[in-house]
Simulated assay, not measured.
Amino acid sequence: MTLATLSDVLQPALKGGYAVGGLVCLGWEDMRAYVAAAEAERLPVILQAGPSCRAHTPLPVLGRMFRHLAESVSVPVVAHLDHGYSFDECREALDSGFTSLMFDGSKLPLSENIAQTALIAEMAHRAGVSCEGEIGFVGYSDGAASQGTHPAEAERFAFETGVDAMAISVGNVHLQQNREGGLDEARIAEIDARTEVPLVIHGGSGVPIEQRARLARGTSICKFNIGTELRMAFGSALRSAVAADPDRFDRVQILREVEAPLEAAARSALRALAPEKEIA
């Protein structure tokens, strides 16, 4: 079994100058494709159950799915709760076998965010699993605007919460369908200079590939969350599979044709974050 905690995969990344992909899951087909991609690339992977995933499938079921997939490969697989919004939700994920809890208190006042995140980090650490927190709200494409991370607040947050990874807001946004943005590297450097904790970029799909690779090798950013570009690959493959035979109705047959293109997209995303010597 290769089930790992977030710290198990991020600490080597921090020391080795690379990052790990946090791949956003919505169902069985994408989970299976992501694990197959990680095994093919010989790289660790973080399977992430966000709010949309949890609305579709209960946490206890997701925990069993993630752990089953971890048993099927030889590379490290992290079972990660993404954007948990309450202590009870994080507790349920822990009880369901998750090895990493992400509490998102980024909309809360700083002191309250610190207090709640510290409580969940303590719970996680007592159970031998990891905790990710977020300081500075990461907005949404065509939605709520971001509130950038202040370096001094990031320093305080990292010290007072004891988190194993810290998500920051530095120009990244969720659900961005193109890579025309880019991150604020000066702000990243300021945060990097004040903290030692591995940094996390949510909304990684909107970050240019070249910048992802360079920041993974040259900063403390050790985790990029990748969701939108993989969902787009899934949707494109699904439309092609349905259009190829309009009379076909068996979803197992249709979805079988989606996994190979999705695995290829996931392999590309993971490879871009790998140690430089491993990038083809």
Rank of each mutant, 00 (worst) to 15 (best):
L43P: 08
P58R: 00
K277T: 15
A243Q: 15
A269P: 03
A145Q: 15
A264G: 08
A237Y: 06
I221D: 00
L3N: 05
A33S: 13
R271T: 13
M166N: 01
Q211C: 09
S96K: 06
C90M: 04
I209V: 15
F224Y: 06
L59H: 06
S240I: 06
S240N: 14
C90P: 08
E89M: 14
H80G: 09
T219Y: 00
G50I: 02
G16D: 09
A36W: 04
L69S: 09
E196L: 11
D30Q: 10
R194S: 11
T117Q: 03
E89Q: 15
G105Q: 03
M102L: 13
P261K: 09
E229I: 05
S86T: 13
A144V: 15
L6K: 04
Y85F: 12
S146A: 11
A40G: 10
N172P: 14
M65C: 13
E160Y: 03
A55T: 08
F224T: 02
R231N: 15
H83D: 09
G22K: 02
M102I: 10
L14Q: 05
F137K: 11
P12E: 12
E39P: 11
E190M: 05
D247H: 14
A36Y: 07
G139T: 15
I46R: 07
R214W: 09
H202T: 03
F103M: 04
P60V: 01
G105M: 03
R156A: 05
A49G: 12
Y34K: 14
A79Y: 06
R54T: 07
F224K: 04
P58K: 00
L108H: 12
A154D: 02
N178K: 10
A144L: 12
N113I: 05
R187V: 02
R194Y: 07
L119R: 08
D164I: 06
A158Y: 05
T2N: 08
E278A: 08
H125K: 03
P275V: 01
N178Q: 10
E263I: 04
V20F: 01
L3Q: 11
A269W: 00
L26G: 13
I135A: 00
M102Y: 06
S240W: 02
D184G: 14
F159H: 14
A266V: 12
E278D: 15
P60C: 02
L69W: 07
A154Y: 03
L10Q: 04
R256V: 11
S74F: 11
E263P: 05
E153C: 07
S220P: 01
F224L: 02
G22W: 02
V163K: 06
E278W: 12
G136M: 00
T228Q: 09
P58Q: 09
G136S: 07
F157Q: 05
P58G: 10
M123T: 09
I254A: 11
R256A: 12
D142M: 11
L10A: 04
R267I: 04
G218W: 00
G133W: 02
C53M: 13
N178V: 10
E185C: 08
L3D: 11
R217H: 09
S268A: 12
A121S: 15
G206R: 11
G218P: 01
A193S: 13
A152Y: 00
A272C: 15
A49F: 07
A49I: 04
I120N: 10
A33H: 07
A193G: 05
A33G: 08
A186C: 07
A158D: 13
D30F: 03
I226A: 01
C131P: 14
M166G: 01
M123S: 08
V258N: 12
